[in-house]
Every structure is written in C-alpha cells, then in structure tokens.
Lab assay of single mutants.
Amino acid sequence: KELVLVLYDYQEKSPREVTVKKGDILTLLNSTNKDWWKVEVDDSQGFIPAAYLKKL
C-alpha cells in the first residue's frame, strides 16, 4: 500500500472529506483524480485536496 504525508492541516468541509493534521502519515487509496485523493484515516475513508499531500 502507498503512504502519503500530510503537508498542511485540513478541516473537512463535506461528509465525503476527512480532517487531517500536518505531519500525519496516511494510507493512499486512490490518486487517479489529480485534485482530490482518497485516503484512509483511522477507520474512515475520505477525500483530501492532493495539494495537501506528498507521496512517500
């Protein structure tokens, strides 16, 4: 599985998104959309702007 590093805090703005903190390491589930990547946070899944993430 691929991991990503969160570069900036992000507060979810819709139920399909997730809240993350700078420095979090998350599992990347889908990066086919260049603007929004799907990640797994704890036991939930959701989208975060790709610009907030860096592949490890």
Rank of each mutant, 00 (worst) to 15 (best):
K1Q: 11
K1C: 14
K1T: 11
K1N: 10
E2Y: 10
L3R: 10
L3I: 07
L3Y: 14
L3N: 05
V4S: 01
V4C: 10
V4H: 01
V4F: 03
V4D: 00
V4R: 00
V4A: 07
V4E: 00
V4I: 04
L5A: 04
L5I: 12
L5M: 10
L5Y: 09
L5D: 01
L5H: 03
L5F: 06
V6I: 04
V6M: 02
V6K: 00
V6S: 01
V6N: 00
V6Q: 00
V6L: 02
V6W: 01
V6G: 00
V6F: 01
V6E: 00
V6A: 06
L7V: 06
L7T: 04
L7G: 00
L7F: 03
L7R: 04
L7M: 08
L7A: 03
L7N: 01
Y8T: 07
Y8G: 06
Y8K: 14
Y8C: 15
Y8E: 13
D9N: 07
D9L: 02
D9F: 04
D9V: 02
D9W: 04
D9T: 05
Y10D: 02
Y10G: 01
Y10Q: 01
Y10N: 01
Y10P: 01
Q11K: 12
Q11D: 12
Q11V: 14
Q11H: 14
Q11Y: 15
Q11L: 12
Q11C: 12
Q11G: 07
E12Y: 11
E12L: 15
E12P: 14
E12Q: 15
E12V: 15
E12K: 15
E12F: 15
E12S: 15
E12N: 11
E12D: 07
K13A: 11
K13H: 09
K13S: 09
K13V: 08
K13Y: 07
S14V: 06
S14I: 06
S14H: 11
P15H: 10
P15W: 07
P15R: 10
P15T: 09
P15Y: 08
P15N: 11
P15G: 11
P15A: 12
P15S: 11
P15I: 08
R16T: 11
R16V: 10
R16F: 14
R16Q: 12
R16E: 11
E17N: 09
E17F: 08
E17I: 06
E17P: 09
E17K: 09
E17H: 09
E17C: 08
E17W: 07
E17T: 11
E17S: 09
V18T: 06
T19K: 08
T19S: 14
T19R: 08
T19Y: 05
T19W: 05
T19A: 06
T19M: 06
T19L: 05
V20T: 04
V20M: 02
V20R: 01
V20H: 04
V20Y: 07
V20L: 05
V20P: 00
V20S: 02
K21H: 11
K21D: 03
K21E: 04
K21R: 13
K21S: 08
K21C: 10
K22F: 05
K22T: 06
K22A: 13
K22R: 11
K22M: 07
K22W: 04
K22S: 08
G23R: 02
G23L: 02
G23Y: 04
G23P: 00
G23H: 04
G23W: 05
D24L: 08
D24I: 05
I25A: 02
I25H: 03
I25K: 05
I25G: 00
I25Y: 04
I25P: 00
I25L: 06
L26T: 01
L26Y: 04
L26E: 01
L26C: 12
L26S: 01
L26K: 01
T27P: 11
T27R: 13
T27Y: 10
T27F: 10
L28N: 00
L28R: 01
L28D: 00
L28A: 02
L28F: 02
L28H: 01
L28S: 01
L29Y: 03
L29G: 01
L29D: 00
L29N: 02
N30E: 15
N30P: 04
N30V: 07
N30K: 06
N30S: 13
N30A: 09
S31L: 03
S31H: 09
S31Q: 09
S31K: 06
T32N: 12
T32W: 09
T32M: 10
T32A: 12
T32Y: 09
T32D: 15
T32R: 10
T32E: 14
T32L: 09
N33E: 10
N33S: 09
N33G: 08
N33D: 14
N33I: 05
N33T: 05
N33M: 08
N33K: 06
K34H: 10
K34G: 08
K34P: 14
K34N: 11
K34C: 12
K34I: 09
D35N: 14
D35P: 02
D35L: 14
D35S: 10
D35R: 13
D35W: 15
D35Q: 11
W36F: 08
W36Q: 03
W37R: 00
W37L: 02
W37A: 02
W37G: 00
K38E: 15
K38M: 15
K38S: 08
K38Q: 14
K38P: 01
V39P: 00
V39M: 01
V39T: 01
V39N: 00
V39R: 00
V39S: 00
V39L: 03
V39D: 00
V39G: 01
E40Y: 06
E40P: 00
E40R: 10
E40A: 13
E40F: 06
E40T: 07
E40L: 12
E40D: 06
V41Y: 09
V41R: 11
V41G: 08
V41Q: 08
V41A: 10
V41I: 13
V41P: 00
D42L: 12
D42I: 09
D42R: 14
D42F: 12
D42Q: 13
D42E: 13
D42T: 08
D42K: 14
D42P: 07
D42M: 13
D42C: 13
D42A: 14
D43H: 12
D43W: 06
D43R: 10
D43E: 12
D43C: 13
D43P: 03
D43Y: 09
D43S: 13
S44E: 12
S44W: 15
S44Y: 14
S44L: 14
S44I: 15
S44K: 15
Q45M: 11
Q45R: 10
Q45I: 14
Q45L: 07
Q45T: 13
Q45G: 06
Q45K: 09
Q45D: 09
Q45A: 13
G46L: 15
G46K: 09
G46V: 15
G46A: 14
F47P: 01
F47H: 05
F47W: 15
F47V: 06
I48Y: 02
I48E: 01
I48N: 02
P49V: 04
P49K: 05
P49A: 04
P49W: 05
P49G: 03
A50K: 06
A50V: 07
A50D: 04
A51E: 12
A51W: 13
A51R: 15
A51L: 10
A51G: 12
A51N: 13
A51S: 14
A51Q: 13
Y52C: 14
Y52V: 14
Y52Q: 05
Y52E: 03
Y52H: 13
Y52T: 06
Y52A: 12
Y52W: 07
Y52D: 04
L53W: 01
L53N: 00
L53H: 00
L53C: 15
K54R: 11
K54P: 04
K54G: 05
K54E: 14
K54I: 12
K54A: 10
K54V: 13
K55C: 10
K55A: 07
K55I: 13
K55P: 09
K55H: 08
K55S: 07
K55R: 12
K55V: 12
L56V: 10
L56R: 01
L56C: 11
L56I: 14
L56N: 01
L56D: 02
L56T: 05
L56H: 04
L56M: 09
